[in-house]
């Protein structure tokens, strides 16, 4: 018995990446890789690329909320910060700033700035718990929205910046549909795999332990505040990378992109998809983007938000764990892949 258990444990604990190589992941990746062969430019960029970007921003929320128990409404603000760095230090046609620094300088700069800003937000927010974390991040997001809207010297106020261009590298313009889709896919895959792997890293375990019982974490030697702030920094890296892609996708960044509406949209995406597994945010993003795109055809321009709202209600009502939770209910095997490899059930006391 103990031998079986040891082998099982070794496999589950497998310090490498092997756990990520599963048939499901293989099929999904294959589909995503050949998707451009089937999809029109519209479905490639407006649905595919945009879903991957929003999925990454929602993934940054899932990291905080699912593993860390910290629900943030400021993730779109963090992504927006990266986009503003791209606009201010890169090229824009708004006649304000636009230093035209090369892409390989401003891209890492934007992601780094977003992550540091995220850590700063986190440093403020980790003093609170539960509903208060939501409120304080909402306050931060709202403050940033009004600040960018009213400040013209730095953020060019209400109109923001337009004319942002993705770089041309290796003879490709990276905003063309196919290259842009693959760029988004590569970023999303890296972020997804990193979160899935990291969930069972030492830090991943500490983050989940902090979520479960911060008092006990202090009593075994952990600086709980530092671990939470580090999680915010990591989530800022993902949101920041998504923010850069968002800037190139839209070709513009303005306060409207980081308003309260888009902020709540990210939370809705994460909850519709499910917070229990990093694939949830991407499922949620695809669903929400499809509804947002096609609801107008179904119910008219004035009612499409009603449709999204009804869908949200239905999902939350049927399954608190989002679409992932629905799948968990119908899938054949009972053990859930909740926070990683799932519970082992081989323990028989000798």
């Amino acid at each position: 018995m103990s031998l079986v258990e040891t082998q099982r444990t070794e496999k589950l604990r497998g310090s490498g990446w092997r756990e990520l190589v599963t048939p499901a992941h293989g099929l999904l990746l294959l589909f995503l890789l050949v998707y451009p062969a089937m999809a029109s430019d519209f479905f490639l960029t407006q649905i595919g690329g945009y879903s991957l970007i929003l999925g990454m921003i929602a993934l940054s929320l899932m990291l905080l909320a699912g593993y860390g128990g910290m629900v943030s409404l400021a993730q779109i603000t963090i992504a927006g910060a990266a986009a503003y760095v791209i606009a201010i230090f890169g090229e824009n046609n708004s006649g304000v700033h636009g230093f035209a620094w090369p892409w390989w300088v401003i891209t890492p700069m934007a992601i780094l700035f977003a992550s540091v800003l995220s850590a700063a937000f986190g440093w403020v927010a980790v003093r609170t718990e539960g509903i208060y974390t939501i409120m304080i991040t909402l306050a931060i997001a709202t403050a940033c929205f009004y600040f960018t809207q009213q400040n013209y010297a730095l953020f060019n106020g209400f109109p923001g910046y337009s004319g942002l261009r993705a770089p041309e590298v290796f003879g490709l313009y990276w905003r063309d549909p196919v290259p842009f889709y693959y760029l988004c896919l590569a970023n999303a895959v890296v972020a997804y795999a990193a979160v899935l792997y990291g969930a069972r890293s030492t830090f991943g375990l500490t983050l989940q332990a902090v979520r479960d019982n911060p008092r006990r974490m202090r009593a075994i030697g952990y600086n709980v505040t530092a671990h939470k702030v580090f999680a915010w920094w990591l989530s800022g890296l993902i949101a920041g990378a998504a923010g850069v892609l968002l800037a190139w996708f839209n070709g513009r960044i303005s306060p409207g992109s980081i308003a309260v509406g888009p902020a709540i949209n990210i939370l809705i995406i994460a909850i519709i998809g499910g917070l229990r597994h990093p694939v949830g945010p991407f499922i949620g993003a695809v669903v929400v983007v499809l509804i947002q795109t096609f609801a107008i055809d179904l119910v008219g321009a004035e009612r499409f938000n009603t449709l999204i709202g009804l869908f949200f209600l239905a999902v939350v009502f049927l399954s608190p764990d989002g679409i992932l939770g629905l799948w968990e209910r119908v899938k054949p095997r009972p053990d859930r892949d909740a926070w990683g490899p799932g519970p082992e059930r081989s323990g028989v006391r000798e």
Partner: peptide, 15 residues
């Protein structure tokens, strides 16, 4: 691990 260094390691613990 709580009383060791590198508590923020992003690597999985090896067996």
């Amino acid at each position: 691990r709580g009383v060791t260094n590198n508590r923020f390691s992003l690597l999985r613990p090896s067996p």
